[in-house]
């Protein structure tokens, strides 16, 4: 069990890099009578990029929201660098310093400029020095290729640009794991590419990523491992090559035949 009172990025846990960075074990989650997750288990090693795919309503978004404690779980365990997410006394700030999340609908703060969106959380939540944060934020703006858009408000940016600001905003917290919840689903087709490129670069730099996506081509190219969920269970998983070309389960086959 982790010691939640420690501060700093994961320094106080007994987690070591040879253990899974995110370890999900037998997770059950219901909304009222509706059981969305019926015992899901998966491990993500440091530097790995995994994709979760599956039909809508199969529980993939719920799963990664649980990793970030946006949804609580009824049963099972989720360990993030040794930190138990299902612990009622969980220090949520400690968790959220480790885990960054990007949403389908960007969810930028519309009353703040792009750069302010990026700088807000480190200043108010982490109480970091303003100048250092500004410097970091500027390098992140460059990283997501939005130079010149620093002082634009979200309402003045395209969907793809907003989504890249959202990615930069998460990165500003220097997380160890990034969660991407169908980040391209709300975008125009022409802007999907720019967001995917940004994510790919992140993955290649060694960021641990968990993606929920419908972009099969992207998943195949970027992911180390693919998980297919249906009706709240992981039906099949494997490395991209074997998964896409040599699926065993009939449900996976059917899904892939519809989507590819």
């Amino acid at each position: 069990m982790a010691s939640p009172s420690q501060s700093g990025n994961g320094s106080g846990t007994n987690w070591t890099p040879d253990q899974p960075m995110v370890s999900i074990k037998d997770v059950h989650k219901s909304f009222g009578d509706l059981e969305v997750l019926k015992g899901v288990s998966l491990d993500v090693m440091k530097g790995e990029c995994i994709c979760i795919i599956g039909p809508s309503g199969s529980g993939k978004s719920t799963l990664i929201r649980c990793v970030n404690a946006l949804n609580d779980i009824q049963q099972g365990s989720i360990l993030v660098e040794g930190l138990e997410v299902n612990d009622p006394n969980l220090d949520k700030l400690e968790l959220r310093k480790k885990v960054g999340m990007v949403f389908q609908q960007y969810n930028l703060f519309p009353h703040k400029t792009a750069i302010e969106n990026i700088m807000m959380a480190p200043i108010t939540v982490l109480k970091q020095d303003k100048d250092e944060v500004a410097e970091h934020a500027n390098s992140l703006i460059k990283k997501v290729r939005l130079e010149g858009k620093e002082n634009s408000y979200p309402g003045e940016l395209s969907g793809g640009q907003q989504q890249r600001v959202a990615i930069a905003r998460s990165l500003a917290m220097s997380p160890d794991v990034m969660l991407f919840d169908e980040v391209t689903a709300a975008l125009d087709p022409e802007t999907v590419k720019e967001v995917l490129n940004t994510i790919q670069e992140l993955a290649e730099e060694g960021m641990t990523c968990i993606l929920v996506t419908h972009e099969m081509g992207f998943a195949r190219e970027v992911a180390n491992h693919i998980y297919f969920t249906d009706f709240g269970l992981i039906v099949e998983h494997g490395a991209p090559a074997t998964f896409f070309d040599d699926a065993k389960d009939p449900r996976t086959k059917e899904f892939l035949s519809q989507i590819l």
């Binding site: 609908q105 960007y106 519309p110 309402g155 969907g159």
Partner: peptide, 9 residues
Amino acid sequence: DEKVFEVLL
């Protein structure tokens, strides 16, 4: 600008 707006507010 309906589309952009609906997403955020």
